[in-house]
Structures are given as C-alpha cells and as structure tokens.
C-alpha cells in the first residue's frame, strides 16, 4: 500500500515539475526556427491586393502563417526599440508590406533593393504587417 502511495506521489511530483518546466522554462526560452520553417510564397503586391480585396479571406489564408515574400524596398526605418523595419512596395502607393526584422538579422538593406523576406504575417492595418522576419536573399 505504501509503495502505491509513494509511486503516486513520485508520479505527481514528476508531472508537476514537467508542467512547470514546459510552461515557464521551455516556453520562455524556446526560439522559433524561422530559417527552417515551412512558408507560403507570395509577391508583396499580391499579398497587399489580397488583403485590400477581401481582408476576412486573406486573414483566413495568411494570418499568423510564415510567409516568404518578394518585393522592392520602398522605405527603411526602425521601431522605437531599435529593430529594423523595411517596407515592400505594391501597386498602391498608400499600402505596402511593412516588415520588422528579427533583432539578429544583420544583412544590409538599401532602398530599391529587390529582396525576399521570411516572417510571420500579423494582419493588415495601413500595410500588411510582418514580424520576426529574416532576409532570405
């Protein structure tokens, strides 16, 4: 009987420790592997057009997905925390794809460069917003 109670206690302790590790240690330190993540490929102009024509449908297709987006750099800037941003132009001069680069991304980017970026699609405000991105080429 004692053995059974002891076994249950040990199992409960291991379970609690595992849950704690997963929730508060592993989840805090794990970094998404953007380099090897599967991605949907799309041109910047087509992505903007998809959101402008039917935002609900575009959200169903692209929201929170990893996208591989090609386009021409029309602006470079940085966030208030210093992460670099770049905007990929579309046919609409008032809307583009605003990409926030991952803080580890060091590749040099200049205006009018043709680039391919890979990052998370977070939805559409004035521009389609992409975060955590890396430069693929």
């Amino acid at each position: 009987m004692k053995k059974i109670i002891l076994s249950i206690l040990v199992l409960a302790l291991v379970g609690a420790a595992g849950t704690y590790y997963y929730a508060f240690v592993y989840s805090k330190n794990r970094k998404f592997d953007m380099v090897n993540a599967e991605a949907m490929t799309i041109e910047a102009n087509a992505l903007v057009k998809a959101f402008q024509e039917n935002e609900t449908e575009a959200n169903k297709t692209y929201l929170d997905k990893v996208l591989l987006i090609s386009g021409s750099v029309s602006a470079t800037d940085q966030t208030q925390t210093g992460d670099r941003t770049l905007t990929l132009s579309s046919d609409d001069p008032f809307a583009g794809v605003m990409v926030t680069l991952d803080s580890t991304e060091a590749a040099a980017i200049n205006m009018n460069d043709k680039v391919t970026v890979k990052g998370f699609c977070k939805g559409f405000l004035s521009d389609v917003v992409i975060t955590g991105a890396i430069i693929v080429k």
Binding site: S27, K28, L63, D64, T79, Q80, F124, S126, T131
Partner: peptide, 30 residues
C-alpha cells in the same frame, strides 16, 4: 511595436490601431 497611429495637428483627431497577434510576450505559451 507595430502600432499604427495618426493625429491631426489642427483638431486633435487621433487613432491608434493594433493587430492583436502583434503582441509579443516573453513566454510563447502565454
């Protein structure tokens, strides 16, 4: 860090807009 905001200098009209999925936590599970 991708909050879209505009305000008009003359009449003070202002807008702040965010994408909810754009909120970044220290803990991915959270």
């Amino acid at each position: 860090n991708q909050t879209d905001s505009k305000f008009v200098g003359e009449n003070g009209q202002v807008i702040f807009a965010v994408l909810v999925k754009g909120f970044k936590f220290e803990n991915q599970l959270m």
